Computed example of a mutant assay.
Amino acid sequence: MTILTTTGNTTTPAQRTTPRRSPQADGMAVASFVLGLVGTLVLNVVLGPCALVLATLALTRGTTRRGRALLGLTLGAADLLLLAALTATDGTLSWHLG
């Protein structure tokens, strides 16, 4: 009598569940937050889209600073909404008081 056994690919659970993480993803998350924050004050036409792109890249590359990336995504969208509001109200791309 012969007993047949099959052996499959043996991987540890850590190898199967760990997503690929880029070492630059954390820096991208922080940069998106800073660019989104600064973009609410100056150059929102440039810094808003940059914050959106960096936040999206950081989230897709598996950052450990997920909250910062989500804040960068939110602030980048707020920059573009602020730009649209400024353009619609007075036709310019800049802040002015009074």
Rank of each mutant, 00 (worst) to 15 (best):
T64L: 06
G91F: 01
L83N: 13
T92N: 04
V46P: 08
T10N: 15
S94Y: 06
G39Q: 07
A51E: 01
S22V: 06
V53N: 02
M1H: 14
F33S: 02
G8I: 04
A77F: 01
D90L: 06
D90M: 04
G76K: 06
S22K: 04
G91C: 05
T56P: 04
D90Q: 02
A77R: 04
L37H: 11
S22H: 14
V53E: 09
P23G: 01
I3M: 13
G91I: 03
V46E: 13
S94F: 01
N9V: 10
G91H: 02
A55S: 15
V38L: 15
S22D: 12
T60F: 12
M28H: 06
L57Y: 07
L52D: 01
G36L: 07
D26M: 05
S94P: 00
A78S: 11
N9W: 10
N9Q: 14
T56V: 14
L97C: 08
T7V: 10
T6N: 10
A31K: 12
L70P: 06
G67S: 03
A85P: 05
A58I: 01
D79W: 00
L73A: 13
P13L: 15
L37W: 04
T87A: 11
T18N: 03
I3R: 10
L52I: 11
A14Q: 09
R68D: 13
G72P: 08
G8W: 00
A14E: 14
G27T: 03
A31P: 03
T89L: 08
T6L: 10
